[in-house]
Design a protein around this nucleic acid. Structure first.
Length: 137
DNA sequence: GCCAACGTTGGC
DNA sequence: GCCAACGTTGGC
């Protein structure tokens, strides 16, 4: 099982919207590296949900509900989407500042490539993030 | 509001 | 195929 992190501007699509929707199609990714991560996702993989912009925090935990398929919102090009389902909010949100201050988490792709909208999370980072967020799976 | 990072485009 | 120019994203 692999772990992931997706990033969104709350104004575009927020964690609270996902909680309301329960599940959503993660479409619109137009970056090859991010697309390849989407394609590597397996059903049931955990996916952290990060708010960029003002919040800059990991706010929730979701899961891959449907593995990659052709992005229906793409007019041209070879793009993919997955479905993700909300699992639970983090008991405590973890800020980017906390991540950068943490020995393990500062190695996250999120911290190193802030523009990549879909990124892998190592097992160690996953456990550490859960611990910092005081969240039990 | 600025700037760094980075991806894309287009001229050569 | 290279690289300069440009646009976008996101943190500060």
């Amino acid at each position: 099982m692999n772990c992931w992190l997706v990033k969104s501007e709350p104004d575009t699509y927020s964690w609270s919207q996902l909680l309301g929707d329960r599940r959503t199609a993660w479409t619109g990714v137009r970056n090859y590296a991010a697309r390849n991560h989407l394609r590597a996702m397996k059903s049931g993989d955990p996916v952290f949900f990060y708010h960029s912009g003002d919040e800059k925090s990991v706010v929730g935990l979701a899961r891959v509900a449907k593995e990659s398929y052709t992005d229906p919102t793409a007019d041209d090009g070879d793009w993919s989407a997955v479905d993700i389902a909300a699992e639970k909010p983090l008991a405590r949100q973890v800020t980017l500042a906390q991540i950068k201050a943490d020995k393990t988490l500062k190695e996250m792709v999120l911290a190193k490539q802030s523009r990549l909208s879909v990124s892998p999370v190592t097992r160690e980072q996953f456990e550490r993030l859960l611990k910092l967020s005081e969240t039990k799976v």
